[in-house]
């Protein structure tokens, strides 16, 4: 049987859009598992993990009540047909009043390295843990935030890119543009003067 950490990482991959290997590479998975357990009432994370492992699409939400008008993923495809089990699991999770907010807090934890307190209504309905407060998990967690990777950047104050790296295109663009030029032009708006018209001050 899959152990709980594996299950957590697999769910996290589904929620964050980063592969399990990438998530493990941050070194934060175990810490986040513990931080999430600590911030939730007993049993809630296990419910979420189970929901993340749903074998097929189209199932009813596992617990709680369906959220009317829960945000459907914009542009989400394949949700109804059951062709994509991840999408089905996602729909089950985010359509659920109890698990949706927890899943969102978990995404933010991975992206920011910080726990975001659950909404007050959620806590009234499902219980509150004393660790359910806004907090940066640790200095390492801040640095491991996926938001920096998503941005093609690095955490402010850490994982420095080296002298002058900022003068080059961000990694994602670099492959597309010729070396030595920005390779990118802002579209000059109609009516704006051209460079040559402007006297340098």
């Amino acid at each position: 049987m899959e152990n709980r950490l594996d299950q957590f990482v697999r769910l996290s991959a589904l929620l964050t859009g980063f592969a399990p290997l990438h998530l493990l590479g941050t070194g934060m998975a175990e810490t986040y598992l513990r931080a999430t357990d600590a911030a939730l009432p007993d049993g809630v994370l296990d419910e979420l993990l189970d929901a993340g492992s749903l074998p097929s699409a189209g199932s009813a939400p596992p617990t709680g009540s369906a959220v009317p008008g829960a945000p459907a993923q914009p542009g989400g495809s394949a949700l109804a047909g059951g062709a994509d089990p991840d999408a089905a699991a996602g729909q089950a999770i985010f359509g659920d009043a109890k698990l949706g907010p927890v899943a969102r807090a978990l995404i933010l934890l991975w992206y920011r390295g910080a726990w975001t307190a659950l909404p007050q209504e959620w806590r009234s309905a499902y219980g509150a843990s004393p660790r359910d407060v806004d907090h940066v998990v640790s200095a390492e967690a801040y640095q491991a935030g996926l938001q920096w990777d998503a941005a093609g950047a690095h955490p402010a104050g850490a994982r420095q890119q080296g002298y002058g790296a900022w003068a080059s295109p961000p990694a994602a663009l670099e492959t597309e543009s010729a070396p030595g030029t920005t390779g990118v032009r802002l579209p000059r708006q109609a009516g704006a003067p051209s460079v040559t018209e402007g006297a340098r001050s």
Partner: peptide
């Protein structure tokens, strides 16, 4: 916006930079 998973990541990659 209710984004998660690869769509979330793609959205951030397309806007943050």
């Amino acid at each position: 916006q209710g984004l998660y998973g690869t769509k979330l990541r793609a959205h951030l990659a397309a806007t943050l930079p």
